[in-house]
Amino acid sequence: MSIKQPKKKRSKKRTIELAAYSAFCVFGAYYCYHLKGQDGFMAALAVQEEMLLGMLPRITMALGVASLLWVLLDPEKLKKTIQKRKGWVKIVYATILGAVTPGGPSSSFSVLNMFLSSGLGYLIGITYITAWSMLGVQRILIWDIPLLGTEQAGLRFISGFWLPAFAGLFAAWIFGKYEDEKRPC
């Protein structure tokens, strides 16, 4: 499901990322001590301890859930399901499919390309990719819930679950591409 990169390249990228995050910590620690003194520094350590103790169990569980979803959901089967539907049901399915598509952009964009090349048009394509980007279940489980809490994650979901369909309809209306549309560009 993920992009196949050479192992060396991936580990180099990971090392650079970790170095950048470590630098962020070191500069944060320096400026915190410099600006707020020892009391501020100790207060920051207390905040970090609280955040880590609260987040680690949630992140571990969330990664377990995301791993199981990644194994259980098959984008190919989901695509076939959507092609069988008609009218507004298709839009609902595109939203659900976008939300549950496992993996990163490589898998979602390959599903999108299949949609566009099989004539599903902007209505379904835009709905699907917008749902994937803003309602992705994996992202909600791994990032939203552990870092921002269930209430904030719920607010984001409730306020936005209907918006991918709105974006799809808007695209189809403005650009005049409903169904029976071949791959653009």
């Binding site: 995050y21 962020f24 915190c32």
Partner: peptide, 16 residues
């Protein structure tokens, strides 16, 4: 590892 480092950095940021 990323998450732990980001949380540590964020803790300092919250103070600043």
């Amino acid at each position: 590892p990323r998450m732990i480092l980001v949380v540590i950095g964020t803790g300092f940021l919250l103070q600043i």
